[in-house]
Structure formats: structure tokens, C-alpha cells
Amino acid sequence: MKIGVMVNEGPYQHQSSDSAYLFCKAAIESGHQIERVFFYHDGVNNATKLTEPPQDDRNVVARWTKLAEEHGVDLVVCVAAALRRGIVEQNLAQGFRISGLGQLVESAIQSDRLVVFGD
């Protein structure tokens, strides 16, 4: 099944990015396709490559990058939400791309399910 995912909160502040990541991983392990993860609201902060978590903590951003590299998951950051919050091409982590809100609507149309994680 094709599943689209939406993430609406930033990393570390709220559990939603962790929940979304673990859901994506389990879906892929179960043989489903995560066709796109769309980052909106403060969720765009998942895409900054400037993050430096302590050594003994998970690296939320790097985890998303790895998911994109290993499973071809399309990580899309909303441009309008990103500009508001200072996420631009220069600080965008590997595996993410910046695009419009239309990508969310398109994902909802093309996927069999859209699962939203947020606060």
C-alpha cells in the first residue's frame, strides 16, 4: 500500500517526529511504500542540517536523511512554512527538498492513506 505521512512539529520539542519516523520504518518493514513525508508548521525544523544533538541522544534529522537514502522516501519541506522559520537551501539537510503545499495535496491524492503526526 502507498502511504503518505505529514509531520507538523519540530524535532526534540514534541514526540510527533519520532512517532512518524518509527511508523515509517515499520511500514517499510511490513512491505508498504512510504511515498512521501511532508513537513509542515514547525515540522520544517526537522530539515535543518545545523542540528547537533548530544552524543547520547538520537539524531532526528540524520535518521530522516538515512530513511530517504535507503528507501527512496521523498522528504518534502513546505516552502512557505520553511521561509517563515529560516529553513532555506543553505541549511537544508541531505535527502530533503523544499517545495510547495501542492506536494501535500498531491500526496494525499496519490497515496492510499495519509497519516498525520502533530500536536
Partner: peptide, 10 residues
């Protein structure tokens, strides 16, 4: 578990 979460979604 998370796999069960995925099953509920599908």
C-alpha cells in the same frame, strides 16, 4: 506495536 499501528492504518 508499530507494526500493529501500520496494520490498523492499512
Amino acid at each position: 506495536d508499530y507494526r500493529g499501528f501500520v496494520d490498523l492504518v492499512t
